[in-house]
Structures are given as C-alpha cells and as structure tokens.
Design a protein around this nucleic acid. Structure first.
Lengths: 137, 137
DNA sequence: TATACCGGTATACAAAAGGATAGCAGATTA
DNA sequence: TAATCTGCTATCCTTTTGTATACCGGTATA
C-alpha cells in the first residue's frame, strides 16, 4: 500500500502551464492553419489566391479555418466594394505575435527531421519526411 | 487577367519552415501528450501512476500516446523484473529538448487566455477558459 | 449567348481521434 | 478461495476532422 496515496502530484508550477499550452495547440491545430498563417505573414491574399496558393485545400476547409483564425483575431477579413466583390485576408498584429512560437516549433521540427534523416532505425517510421504541406510551383 | 499568374508565391524561406512546424505539431498533438510530457518532466512515473495522475485519460489512450512518444524517443520505457512487473516511464534527453517549445507555447497561450479574460466581446467565444486538462486534487 | 470569374455554401461521405466498458494473466493479500 | 494488484489489450461506439463534388447569384468577358 505504498503507492495509492504516494503518487507524487505534479508541482503547481507545472500544472499552471498545462492549460495555456493546450490553448496554443488548439489554436494552431487544423491541417491548414499554419499554411494560412505563414502565407499571410508573407503577404495579404484573397480567398481564391489562398486557394490556389495552398496546395490541396478545399474551399470548405479554407473558409472554415479562416473563420476560426478570424474569430481569434489572428487574421483580418476586409471586404472591398468592387465588382465582383474583393475579400482580402491579412494577418493582424496579434497574429504576428505568433511568429516566435511558430519559429520555435519550426526550429525543433527541423532538428527532429534531421535526426530522423540521420537514419536512426528506431524512429525511421515516426513520420514520413517527404510529406508536403504547401508547395506552389 | 491580372491575378491568375500574379499570385505572389511565398518566399522559399517561408516554405522551408512549413514542414518542420507541422512535424512539431504532429508530435505534440493528441489530447494527452502534453500532460504526459509535463508529468514526466517533473518525475518518473509508472503506467498506473500516470493513469491516476492524469485526470480523465483511459488506459487505451494512455497506452497509445505513450507508444507514440516512445517511438519518437521522447519517452523511455523501462521494465523492472519485479512481481508484479513494474514499468517505469521517463523523459529522455531528447524529450527534454521540447521544454523550450512547450514553454513558448505556454507563454503565448497564457497571454491569449489573459486577452480573452479581459472580456473582448469578439473573442469571448473563441475558447472556454475554464477548460481543464489535468487537475489532481 | 456561353463562359469564366468572385467568394463562398450545401450535401454526402470517409477517415481519424477519442471514449466507455470489459477483460486477461500472473502474483499477492485477506 | 476470493479479491486486488500489475500493465496493459479488445471491442464497440460517438464525435470530430477532413475530402469530394456540385452549386449559387452577380458581373464581366469572348
């Protein structure tokens, strides 16, 4: 009977960080959010432009993920009263604040990729390094 | 006809970062991976201990996500030949390298949380700030 | 008049993720 | 002998996520 009560609980400090980490992951999650954010960090784009730029995305998913990003104020949607109507998506300053997080994710990810490519047998099947997310041209 | 060919492609620099970012997200994704990693950053635990510690996880999911973490060499599984058998999970040095990424995610996440709590009407429904992930005691 | 563009929606489906519940073998404890 | 401990696995189900395909009204172009 040394364990039931003896499981060391995590420190309050650790626990405090759990929820916010999940928040960030939830916001960045979804197959197309990162490609959209990266595209808009680079330049403003219209709906159809994003559709053409992000290889494989369907209008439904593009629309859905843009809405979620807009709801979280990471992306701004501007309608111009031209004919036909023009809708431009741009990154907000708040969206720009994700740059560092994305950078850190990218940094760790490319080290991980390098590690896998180095041929460690045990993690060879961990993730296919050929998988593409966005690749215009 | 000014747009079809005129869609500015993203810079090569941007594109290079996309895949690794997705890699990181894929590895951290799954409802229980972050709680598991945070727990193991804090202390070594056995299967049942993790099960008791991480509120709400089923043995099926715990087993599945531990396997994925082990496959990626973030977590180490050690079997002790006691009776009944003891299995201890610990973080690897490689797993520890995730600390900074998780820290950055947590930092951004808690700023986001603060922002939502501040009561901005437009993002009030973005995410429920009461959502708990792990909370023993 | 026919076609293509714009910014999306609607519908139907497939795949993946996750949850609920039960059980197993082998050893110890009551 | 029955119950409980260990570290899981099996089965079934629901929810979420993503795909495929077609379509819309309004305008401009060929």
């Amino acid at each position: 009977m040394e364990h039931e009560l003896g499981v060391k609980p995590m420190s309050a400090e650790c626990l405090q960080h759990l929820k916010p980490v999940r928040d960030s992951l939830d916001i960045l999650n979804g197959k197309w959010k990162i490609p959209i954010i990266v595209a808009l960090l680079h330049h403003n784009y219209r709906f159809k432009e994003l559709h053409r730029l992000i290889d494989g995305v369907t209008p439904k998913m593009l629309s859905k993920e843009l809405k979620e990003l807009e709801l979280n104020e990471l992306v701004k949607r501007t309608v111009f009263d031209t004919t036909p109507v023009t809708v431009e998506y741009s990154i907000t300053p708040y969206g720009k604040s994700l740059e560092k997080v994305i950078f850190e994710l990218g940094k760790w990810g490319s080290e991980h990729r390098a590690r896998i490519m180095k041929g460690k047998e045990s993690i060879k099947h961990a993730r296919c390094p050929e998988k593409e997310t966005v690749l215009p041209g």
